[in-house]
Structure formats: structure tokens, C-alpha cells
């Protein structure tokens, strides 16, 4: 089955981003295909390469980044949500004349159209965090 996943919950104050990661890993293990993961609202914080997790806690941003790189998944961060929360790639940082970019490896920044496209091309769309 072709599955897309939307994550909306904050990775630092909600469980949903971890649940979504576990779900994606289970889906791949079961032989399903992941068409796209779309990060919306507070979940775009997962795209920051600058977060620091306490030593005895899991760095969920790093875990997601590693996961999407390992399986070469299409991991899209919503641009409108990202800009508001200070998640910028090089081109957005230069467009808005910000001092740095912080988008972690493995993620792309794009628009809500990518989510609609995922709905059209997937057998199931599963949301985490709402």
C-alpha cells in the first residue's frame, strides 16, 4: 500500500512526531511504500538542525533526519509554517536576509500543494498530532 503521513504536533511538547516515526518504520518493515511525509504547523520544528536534546533524551530531529536520509523519503516541510517558526533553508535565508539557514539534511521546504499531491497519489493518508 502507498502511504503518506502528515505530522502536525510539536516534536518537543507532544508525542506525535515520535509516534509518526514509529509508524513510518513499521509501515516500511511491513512492506508498504511511503510516498511522502509532510510536516505542518509545529511539526516543522523537526526540520531544525540546531536543536539540542538533553543527554538522557532522544534527539527526535536527528532521528527523523537519519530516517528520511536512510530510506531516501520525500520529507517536505510546509514553507508557511516553517518561515513563521524560523526554519529556513539557504534560499529562504537569503531571500529574507536572515543571518543563517538551519534546515537539517534530508528535508525539503515546499508548499501545501505537496500535501494535496500526496493525498491524490496515496492509498492512505495518516495524520499525527491533531
Amino acid at each position: 500500500m502507498i502511504i503518506s503521513v502528515m505530522v502536525t504536533g510539536s516534536p518537543v511538547s507532544q508525542q506525535s512526531a515520535q509516534t509518526a516515526l514509529s509508524f513510518c518504520q513499521a509501515a516500511l518493515s511491513a512492506g508498504h511504500q511511503i510516498y511522502r511525509v509532510f510536516f505542518y504547523e509545529d511539526a516543522v520544528q523537526l526540520g531544525s538542525a540546531l536543536n539540542v536534546a538533553p543527554q538522557d533524551e532522544r534527539n527526535l530531529n536527528a532521528a527523523w533526519s537519519e530516517f528520511v536520509k536512510q530510506y531516501e523519503l520525500d520529507a517536505v516541510i510546509c514553507v508557511a509554517s516553517a518561515l513563521k517558526r524560523g526554519i529556513l533553508n539557504d534560499s529562504e535565508a537569503s531571500r529574507y536576509q536572515k543571518p543563517a539557514a538551519n534546515l537539517a539534511e534530508g528535508f525539503d521546504i515546499s508548499g501545501l500543494g505537496q500535501w494535496v499531491d500526496a493525498c491524490l497519489n496515496s492509498d492512505r493518508v495518516v495524520s499525527f498530532g491533531a
Partner: peptide, 15 residues
């Protein structure tokens, strides 16, 4: 607002 934006994006794709 997040829901409204998704509705409008879906409408643009003529769903």
C-alpha cells in the same frame, strides 16, 4: 487557519 489553508489548497487542486 491551518485547516482553512488546507481547504483552499485542496480546492485549488480541484478536489
Amino acid at each position: 487557519k491551518a485547516c482553512l489553508d488546507m481547504v483552499l489548497a485542496s480546492a485549488v487542486f480541484e478536489q
